[in-house]
Amino acid sequence: MSLRGDVCVVTGACGFLGKRLVRLLLEEEKMAEIRLLDKHVQPEFLQTLEDCSSNTKLSVFEGDIRDSDFVRQACRGASLVFHIASIIDVNESVEYTEMYGVNVKGTQVLLEACIQENVVSFHLHQAPLRTHIYDCALKFSYSKTKKEAEQRTLLAHGEVLQNGGRLATCALRPMYIFGEGCRFLLGHMGDGIRNKNVLFRMSVPEALVNPVYVGNVAVAHLQAARSLKDPQKRNVAGGKFYFISDDTPPVSYSDFNHVVMSPLGFHIQDKLMVPLCLFYVFCFFFEIVCMMLRPFIRIVPPLNRQLLTMLNTPFTFSYQRAKRDLGYNPRYSWEEARKRTTEWLASQLPKERKRIIAK
């Protein structure tokens, strides 16, 4: 079903995925208006959209997702919301109260605004929620907050709107997202440059995961919106979460970095710098030292046990349920996604080398 004539809000519109989703909506849906909600919307980004905006109105809403009055204003008159905004942190560098405020309370504020302003469709972009990490003693603050945000989102499905209608919600769980604009890939490339074009190995080859291309994740969000608008599919997809992957071959995180960067002349370490068990011990002691120094100075370890666990735990899943319920199919093949990503990294290579030399 088409979104023609709809007014939508995209939170986190200037982020990695948000930019891709906004462009896709402009190219494929003749919407009445797209509202870009972010803390700061760069004029350069708006300029890149001029070639595909056609008759769709682009409105800018700069502010804090925790500000209920601001969020209500952004949602007033809208028919659907793509909630992409969140604080992503795997190094525990962000205070928990700040992360909880944005990821959980911000989501709750947005859900309440949808109910008050009669927004009928709400789509939450999620992290790949790993139950085995939630249930063990080591827990990412990021994952905990995103899990609670998802629970609140799915429980809100069917809530009565002010005009008597019903709110429809769903959540998408992509795996690690790669592609043009991925700051994590850029960071790994910078580390490789500093290490004389040798990428660090932080995960064992057996820890297979299936990264997903950003273009395919954007397509999945569009298909979810179309499904929740369809009266017949709404009851099927509403209140559910969907894993989103594509046909990227399963590979470890470190080996994936090598796959997309090897055409640029990068190599990768054959083995972990130290055995995995010693890596855990090292992280444990580093965390203890940082905790002892916390009253005097805040030091964020570059690696912690949670992150090491994630990087070395196999985790793959299928998108077949999203295909069945939402009509999702990856639009970009692995070959095309890899080519686009490598070309983007190549375009960033001179900038990264200059930045590192300048330091």
Rank of each mutant, 00 (worst) to 15 (best):
residue 253 Y to Q: 12
residue 282 F to L: 04
residue 41 V to E: 11
residue 271 K to P: 08
residue 33 E to M: 03
residue 46 L to I: 03
residue 343 E to W: 07
residue 133 I to L: 15
residue 5 G to E: 01
residue 129 L to Q: 11
residue 311 L to P: 01
residue 58 L to K: 00
residue 179 G to T: 01
residue 36 L to R: 04
residue 78 A to K: 00
residue 36 L to Y: 04
residue 142 Y to V: 00
residue 91 N to I: 07
residue 190 G to M: 13
residue 138 L to I: 08
residue 232 Q to T: 08
residue 192 G to K: 07
residue 107 T to P: 06
residue 278 L to S: 05
residue 6 D to L: 03
residue 230 D to L: 14
residue 56 T to D: 00
residue 163 N to F: 01
residue 208 L to T: 08
residue 164 G to H: 04
residue 247 D to P: 10
residue 354 K to T: 08
residue 288 I to N: 09
residue 307 L to I: 02
residue 308 L to C: 04
residue 214 V to I: 14
residue 55 N to S: 14
residue 20 R to N: 06
residue 87 I to G: 01
residue 298 R to F: 06
residue 149 A to H: 02
residue 313 T to E: 07
residue 49 L to T: 02
residue 170 C to P: 07
residue 230 D to Y: 12
residue 165 G to Q: 01
residue 54 S to P: 09
residue 282 F to R: 00
residue 262 S to Y: 10
residue 355 R to E: 09
residue 192 G to S: 09
residue 335 E to D: 15
residue 93 S to H: 06
residue 339 K to G: 05
residue 116 Q to W: 09
residue 123 H to V: 12
residue 313 T to S: 08
residue 67 D to P: 01
residue 86 S to W: 11
residue 80 L to I: 00
residue 62 E to I: 00
residue 238 G to D: 02
residue 165 G to P: 02
residue 358 A to W: 11
residue 185 L to D: 13
residue 28 E to Y: 02
residue 312 N to W: 07
residue 134 Y to S: 13
residue 87 I to V: 08
residue 207 A to K: 11
residue 266 F to E: 01
residue 48 T to M: 11
residue 305 R to K: 14
residue 359 K to M: 13
residue 298 R to K: 15
residue 212 V to E: 13
residue 239 G to R: 15
residue 183 R to W: 11
residue 333 S to M: 01
residue 90 V to T: 13
residue 174 P to M: 09
residue 119 V to F: 04
residue 220 A to W: 11
